[in-house]
Amino acid sequence: MVRDLDDIIIRTCARIMVPFMQVYGLYVFVHGHSSPGGGFQGGCIMAASFILLATAFNIKEAKMRFTEKVNGIFCCLGVFIYAGTGAVAVIFSGNFLDYSRWTNILPTNPVMARYYGMALIELGVQITVMAVMVSIFLDLVTGGSHEEVMKTDD
């Protein structure tokens, strides 16, 4: 189903580009507070790096770097971080997603607590978007039968 294209130019370019794409995805996420960017954009860029791995090499290579188990855990972990950040505020007698209550844990004023709370939930969004994009791509491109493709590639 997925042809193993053996092209040295594409492989070398992809191998050089992938780390830069991942660092750029993290940059877009970290600088989301003071410049255009954020979790959704950074997550899509990081997912694009794994999709580039899968298209330039093969599915097996991409699944070796970003395994099925890690992918499934990341899908859930992002939503968990987001909801957990909001739930911590409820524990300290605030409203759900009211990050200024994080001053009970963090040694800052309420404004900076909101700043760091937003960074946390952007992290959750980034992880979920990255994992779900990669998961949807791999499922669609293999028709949901990852093991069979790996067998025929060998």
Binding site: G38, F40, Q41, G43, C44, V129, V132, I136, L140
Partner: peptide, 17 residues
């Protein structure tokens, strides 16, 4: 729209499935 674009990609994935 930022959220709508990403959700649109995900729902397009379901449609393709």
């Amino acid at each position: 729209m930022l959220t709508a674009i990403v959700v649109g990609v995900a729902t397009t994935g379901i449609a393709l499935t």
